[in-house]
């Protein structure tokens, strides 16, 4: 469960995020859309406490991220635009490292390979150095890290930008798997199609505020696109 309560971040007098109220319960994928500079990444960073809020709270399963960042991060998994890994280690070595660091527990080779398989990474690729990985493969390792961690909530910041449609589609299926495990997923994306495909709700952000929220079941793709463009145009006009 992810919850923002009047979450606000102000940079030099300019609000990047303005009293955001948001609840993403377990088993839901909330997609956050919006033009560049709308405050999406700021929202994600506040849940991770990579930045501290000016006011308000970011709660992960009730844990205030600013007050107890380590505890909050423990409940979270995070997949940025490009999952950054150690190029000189193999995929499975990277997973081993990050999973040990997140749980304090060492997993066997079999277990790690199973997690990577679950995340859609080929066995052959898992044993190669990450330096030669495509972006899609990196994202899969990111998913495996989230799986290994047994996280309660998942934050994704434009995870599919730059992926080809096939890879993006595969990624969407993985997100759907995680949702079924009762994870609360907050996904920032520019991809309306992806949002409609795997989101349970879609929020459109504009200048630090949530301008509109749709249930994906009640809205078709065209309706979503129209709303998104309208809001973006308003932003440009303003």
């Amino acid at each position: 469960m992810l919850e923002a309560r009047a979450l606000t971040k102000i940079y030099q007098g300019a609000p990047a995020l303005d009293k955001l109220d948001l609840q993403v319960p377990g088993g839901e994928v909330f997609c956050l859309l919006g033009p560049n500079g709308a405050g999406k990444t700021t929202t994600v960073n506040l849940f991770l406490n990579f930045i501290t809020p000016t006011s308000g709270q970011a709660l992960v399963c009730g844990v205030d991220a600013a007050a107890a960042p380590l505890a909050a991060r423990h409940l979270l998994a995070y997949i940025p635009e490009t999952v950054m890994l150690y190029g000189n280690l193999t995929g499975v070595e990277n997973l081993e490292y990050f999973s040990t660091l997140s749980t304090g527990r060492r997993r066997g080779r079999q277990e790690l390979m199973a997690l990577l398989r679950e995340a859609g990474l080929q066995e052959e690729a898992a044993n190669r150095r990450v330096a030669g990985y495509s972006k899609g493969m990196r994202q899969k390792v990111g998913i495996a890290i989230a799986l290994a961690k047994d996280a309660k909530a998942l934050l994704l910041d434009e995870p599919t930008s730059g992926l080809d449609p096939l890879a993006a589609n595969e990624f969407a299926r993985l997100i759907e798997d995680l949702r079924r495990r009762n994870m609360a997923v907050l996904m920032v994306t520019h991809d309306l199609f992806l949002a409609k495909q795997c989101g349970t709700r879609v929020g459109i952000m504009q200048r630090g505020r949530l301008a509109a929220v749709f249930n994906t079941d009640d809205t078709d793709h065209l309706g979503l696109e129209r709303a998104y463009l309208d809001i973006s145009r308003q932003a440009v006009a303003a």
Binding site: M1, E3, Q23, P25, G26, C61, G62, V63, D64, A67, A68, L70, A71, A72, H74, L75, Y86, L89, Y97, T100, L101, S102, T103, G104, R105, R106, K152
Partner: peptide
């Protein structure tokens, strides 16, 4: 929000094997 959904900071799981973490970092470095 259900009561089960809320975990207080005190109860939140933290890594147990700190020494293992330190060693893992050291070995990788």
């Amino acid at each position: 929000m259900s009561a089960v959904d809320v975990i207080t900071a005190a109860e939140a799981p933290l890594p147990s094997g700190r020494w293992r973490i330190i060693r893992t970092v050291a070995v990788k470095e």
